[in-house]
Amino acid sequence: MTMTENFLDLDGVESSDIKIVFSGPVGAGKSQAIRTVSDIEVVQTDVVATDEVQDSKETTTVAMDYGELQLDADTTLALYGTPGQERFRFMWDILIKGALGVVLMVDDSAPDPLGDLETYLQNFSHHIAQSTAVVGVTHTDVAASSGMEKYYEYMEQKGYFFPIYPIDARKAEDVNLLLQSLTAMLEIGG
């Protein structure tokens, strides 16, 4: 190898890993989704919840989740999950760096799921504009749900043309559907 070939790209190291970030509000199922599809034991930073979150679950993510999914012999999806609470917004900004796609997850049983979706779409808008996103709506079976129609209408009104699916974060086929949609859009350039 000549010296001219032997260089470090200071804009980022070449890698066949595709970084995907799962984000969304507390309880939307981000950690569960990564656990469901990861090929490796998921790196978690869960701690006991001391606030109202403990009404719905005992622990909460405070830094990140990390899992991996081998797509083929050469390509691995690196799956990062953000904390849900806005006080951890600094982690969102750290984790989104270098991500090629965003999986936004929304809990349909939350008081204002469309408001939650708006918050996260706004927060990641700059990044999404340069890459792409998919939306997974969870807990559609337990909510007094008015169905998916409101999400489709909202996305159309706002001019967001991302796939949006009702999913169960515990089902590999559902989480894989999100990831396949995302990677397909990456292949065709968003």
């Binding site: 930073t45 701690v47 405070v62 830094a63 904390p83 609470q85 951890f88 600094f90």
Partner: peptide, 8 residues
Amino acid sequence: SMGSSLMS
């Protein structure tokens, strides 16, 4: 918040 993230 950063303190809890880093400790974790």
